[in-house]
């Protein structure tokens, strides 16, 4: 059987679970990555920038680093942080986070499009964190994004797929990998997102703040795999209300 893979910026991945590295006890990051089977791990450049306790030292080798631009309030700041990431040796992948709101940490789509355009031109593999808006997603695609990363719910909230319908629209309309980022609190929610046809799920808080980090990382891995398989299998349809006779009255027309 052909392996189920997906590509991003010319790199091929089998794992569809992207793990965040914030909010951890550093010693537990490695275990989380291993249990999650994650091939991509995000890290805040503002954390990697530390000389004494760099988070980079705790990330297993061979995992693709995805530095994010958290701390940027506009496109220009995001560009500066992305360049800093490159200088720190984090590679060409960059997750754009432009946030102008300290309460909900909602991304600013307009500035994100601008940053995407600037960074794609500089050869970065740009992965923009966004509010799931179809027009913004098209603009990101046109600006050179490698994927789109719509939020499921406010970051850290663990509220699950609050933006379900709008993410579905992106899955249906945008020919780029759609990666659900932020707000996924439980493996069941990650599974549901995968069933919808998203390419991958990213999670941080749900794993980092779990009672047993290893176990939760493993639970997410299985849920994401299950959701992916269900999507590939093609789920049966769901009726809004009422039942459906298994021997319909018009069945004879097919006889």
């Amino acid at each position: 059987m052909k392996t189920d893979t997906w590509t991003l910026g010319g790199h091929e991945f089998t794992s569809r679970f992207i793990l965040g590295s914030g909010k951890y006890n550093l010693e537990l990051i490695r275990a989380a990555v291993e249990e999650a089977g994650a091939q991509i791990i995000t890290l805040a450049v503002r954390r990697a920038n530390s000389e004494t306790a760099s988070i980079l030292d705790y990330i297993p080798k061979g995992v693709t680093l995805l530095p994010n631009t958290s701390g940027a309030r506009n496109a220009e700041e995001a560009v500066r942080i992305a360049r800093l990431a490159r200088e720190l040796g984090c590679g060409d992948f960059v997750k754009i986070e432009v946030i102008n709101d300290s309460k909900y940490l909602l991304p600013d789509n307009y500035e994100t499009v601008r940053a995407t355009e600037l960074l794609a031109r500089e050869g970065f593999v740009v992965m923009p964190y966004m509010y799931p808006d179809l027009n913004a997603a098209r603009a990101l695609r046109d600006a050179g994004a490698a994927c789109v990363m719509p939020l499921a719910a406010p970051i850290g909230s663990n509220k699950g797929l609050c933006t379900r319908e709008f993410i579905q629209i992106l899955v249906d309309e945008i020919d780029l990998p759609v990666i659900v980022d932020a707000g996924i609190g439980r493996p069941s929610q990650a599974c549901e997102a995968m069933e919808m046809g998203v390419a991958a799920v990213m999670s941080n808080t749900a794993v980092a703040t779990a009672g047993d980090i290893r176990k939760m990382a493993g639970a997410f891995k299985k849920a994401i795999e299950a959701g992916r398989e269900a999507y590939l299998a093609g789920p049966g349809r769901v009726l809004e209300k009422g039942g459906d006779a298994s021997s319909p009255l018009t069945g004879f027309l097919r006889d």
Binding site: Y24, N25, L26, A44, V45, R46, R47, N49, S50, T52, A53, G71, A72, R73, E77, R80, I81, L84
Partner: peptide, 16 residues
Amino acid sequence: VRKQGLEPVMNDYVYV
């Protein structure tokens, strides 16, 4: 800090 099961962080900031 570690004894409380927490992680001491020296910097979570980037000046831009």
